[in-house]
Simulated assay, not measured.
Amino acid sequence: MEKILVTGANGQLGSELAVLSLNYPQYEWIFADRTKITLNDLEALQIQLEEIKPNIIFNCGAYTAVDKAETEKEIAFKINHLAVELIAKYTFENNAKLIHISTDYVFDGSSSIALNEEEETNPINVYGASKRDGEIACLKVNPKSIIIRTSWVYSKFGNNFVKTMQRLMQEREAINVVNDQIGSPTYAADLAQTMIDILEFPEWIAGIYNYSNEGEISWYEFALAIKELGGYNCNVGGIPSVSYPTPAKRPEFSLLDKKKIKNTYNLDIPHYKESLEKMFV
């Protein structure tokens, strides 16, 4: 029986994979939180991988505190770059499969059309730079790896934009949301299923792929969709990013072109509103 190791088990994607794993008993699933897999201690990580001996790794663990990364650069790069390099090295040396999750933040946001996998990367914050270095190291050490770039992830599990909006819209009479950052949300349950579909696909086709739900929206428009589905009375206003300064810059435009993953794996990707409805059920 093949053994799948899922890092970041308590995160949004790891939690959704745990739900789906019940449908795939042909694998031995190992869901590793920080106590089982220590991404910020490379010596410990090496020992842990050798003890677990996975045949497949879904690397969902990451340093994702975008603003804190600006002042915690060393730990961000250790987890998002050096740990990824070590995991890729393990999979290469042990002929194991690796699906590694990356981000739209590898781009600078200066585009006006959907970004494909060949687009030039140019991160504008520490988090994005650490994730891009992780991508480069991953493919250099193990060219057979699959990397999935995703954006605006949300889920019933963990902390995310949707859950924050649900809470604020019930607590406040009015909120403001930035209206000049454009992209598309990703329902973690959809991405988790896609990862399993790729694993189950007859052929292993390495490389970088983009994945998010369909649709092109701003965070403000996303908030309006949440308001509508939740039936909240809160007044939602749109504001420019300059009115909501953050320690880390965000890409203004990071809509991902998903033709490659759809054509390669014959995927039907749901529209963001369809997936958002699933979370509200």
Rank of each mutant, 00 (worst) to 15 (best):
A189F: 15
I37V: 10
I146E: 00
F222T: 13
S112T: 09
K258W: 05
R149V: 00
G14T: 13
G215L: 04
K156F: 07
T194D: 10
K3M: 07
R172Y: 14
K36S: 06
E70P: 00
S155E: 06
K262R: 13
L49G: 00
K262W: 10
G231C: 02
P143Q: 08
E70M: 01
F280Y: 11
L256W: 02
F157H: 15
D268C: 08
V178P: 11
Y220E: 04
E51Y: 03
F161G: 03
E203L: 08
P25M: 01
G8K: 03
T150D: 02
R132G: 01
K278F: 12
N95H: 12
Y187S: 05
K3T: 05
M169K: 05
P54H: 15
N125K: 01
K3I: 05
A32M: 12
I57A: 09
L5I: 11
A225G: 06
L199H: 14
V178A: 13
N95R: 11
E135I: 00
E50K: 10
I101V: 10
F58M: 05
P240N: 06
C60P: 04
N59C: 09
L267I: 07
R34I: 07
G215Y: 05
K144P: 06
S241C: 10
T246F: 02
P240S: 09
S110K: 12
V84N: 08
K273V: 08
E120I: 11
F253T: 00
K278L: 12
G61C: 09
Q12S: 13
S112M: 05
Q170W: 06
G8I: 03
S241M: 11
Q181K: 07
K278V: 12
A223K: 10
P54F: 15
I57M: 09
E203N: 11
V162N: 06
K156G: 14
G11C: 13
V19A: 05
I87C: 03
V177T: 07
L191V: 04
T64C: 15
W29S: 09
E171V: 03
N10C: 08
P185Q: 13
G61E: 04
F280R: 04
N10D: 10
I75N: 14
E85C: 08
F58W: 07
N213T: 03
R149G: 00
Y127P: 01
